[in-house]
């Protein structure tokens, strides 16, 4: 199975390190979540993968070959977002019909079918699209590129709930048909959690998690109760976040098995965080 390997990727803009020694693997036949706060390095990573920008150090390999100025490799990687570079006077249908010059496996028929499903008028000029439809157009271009690696950067931006549900269904259907690798960056974590087999978490340019999405969620638990009791329970444990309300306190504890209710002091309750709750705890500042 085809594989993309990212090795020690670092990107500095002046004195700012946007991406700091990130290594990860993306295999065809899997859907990944790329998660992290604004400014964590997600978009930088995406633009390095697609060769839109060059790393300060490190490399991106596709089946062992560096993607840098490698046309064959780049035809197999399609990152949504590049279409911002397209002139606004272009019509959606013109983009679709010219895509095959860049992505030879472009499926124009599928692109047109998607336009119809989303109610996007292919005769519209890109500059005349609303925020939601601009996102939809970019998603459609990426999904119909025929690339083996499809990277969707914020594919839900401006989409209403109906269009988001439709998008999730279409992603799964396309994945089932093509087995293309999907990497999806989003802030709607709980809504998308079910799509991901594995998640990457970036924080301040560093990769802080690269794990099976269920395993990651089960790597932490929430404990809640009277402040004094919670504090004595969490003493010596790795606490990601802790917040108080009145005389009560809730903490997110990382690592170790989730204690069974019988093993807990009276008055304390444990629960499993949602992926979003855990992400908030992992990427909280300070």
């Amino acid at each position: 199975m085809s594989m993309m390997e990212i090795r020690s990727l670092t990107k500095r803009y002046g004195s700012k390190t946007a991406l700091d020694d990130v290594s990860l693997k993306i295999a065809k036949g899997s859907i990944y979540g790329l998660l992290g706060r604004n400014g964590a390095g997600k978009t930088t990573l995406v633009s390095l993968i697609s060769n839109r920008d060059f790393p300060t150090s490190g490399e991106v390999l596709l089946d062992g070959a560096n993607v840098k100025e490698n046309d064959r490799a780049l035809k197999n990687i399609c990152c949504m977002g590049a279409e911002q570079l397209l002139p606004g006077y272009m019509r959606v249908k013109d983009v679709i019909s010219s895509m095959r010059y860049f992505y030879k496996n472009t499926d124009a028929e599928y692109a047109n079918a998607l336009c119809e499903k989303f109610g996007l008028d292919p005769k519209k000029r890109l500059s005349r699209l609303s925020t939601g439809y601009r996102t939809i157009a970019k998603v459609i271009f990426a999904m119909s590129s025929g690339a083996d690696y499809i990277i969707l950067d914020e594919p839900t931006l401006g989409l209403d709930a109906n269009h988001r549900e439709l998008l999730y269904k279409l992603i799964i259907e396309r994945f089932n048909e093509t087995e293309a690798a999907f990497v999806i960056s989003t802030h709607l974590i709980d809504e998308c959690a079910g799509l991901f087999e594995r998640v990457f978490v970036l924080r301040e340019g560093r990769l802080i998690a690269d794990e099976d999405s269920d395993a990651l969620r089960r790597s932490a638990y929430l404990v809640e109760g009277k402040t004094a009791e919670v504090d004595s329970f969490i003493a010596g444990k790795k606490v990601l976040t802790r917040s108080e309300v009145g005389s009560f306190c809730s903490a997110c504890v990382s690592g170790g098995d989730v204690p069974s209710p019988d093993a807990l002091p009276d008055g304390l309750e444990v629960s499993q965080p949602t992926l979003q709750q855990l992400l908030i705890a992992m990427t909280e500042e300070g």
Binding site: K169, I172, N176, E197
Partner: peptide, 10 residues
């Protein structure tokens, strides 16, 4: 997987 919008591996 398509109906539930859940990863087929899951």
């Amino acid at each position: 997987s398509a109906a539930l919008k859940i990863n087929p591996a899951t």
